[in-house]
């Protein structure tokens, strides 16, 4: 199993991460070395094994449906690169072709 250049482009799109030509070459090489090493995982028989995504058997943690104070608008916006009239500003979105 190895990552191709095409796949690297696809991954760059999926991850929303621009990769320079050098990045692509380097990452393709490095990730293939890593994945080759990781392939030893495939030799483990896990047919009857459940996946663990939570290590502790905690269940049903809830909060009550109570309104708590929101943060002031200035704090909400204080780290935004661009704001306008209480909104976050983003480059224009064009949805349809």
């Amino acid at each position: 199993m190895s990552i191709t250049n095409e796949e690297m482009d696809h991954l760059s799109d999926l991850a929303m991460l621009k990769l320079s030509a050098e990045d692509k070459d380097l990452f393709t090489k490095q990730l293939n070395t890593i994945l080759e090493y990781f392939d030893e995982l495939q030799e483990v028989d896990t047919s009857d094994i459940e996946a663990t995504s939570h290590v502790l058997p905690i269940r049903n943690v809830f909060r009550e449906d109570k309104v708590e104070e929101s943060i002031p608008l200035c704090e909400c916006l204080q780290n935004a690169p661009q704001i306008k009239n209480g909104f976050f500003v983003v480059p224009k979105i064009i949805d349809t072709e």
Binding site: M1, F38, L41, Q42, V44, T46, I49, E50, A51, T52, S53, V55
Partner: peptide, 14 residues
């Protein structure tokens, strides 16, 4: 092959 397999091996390790 990757994520899920890793979680199963995680079970074995634990």
């Amino acid at each position: 092959q990757y994520y899920l397999k890793a979680q199963k091996v995680r079970t074995l390790i634990m």
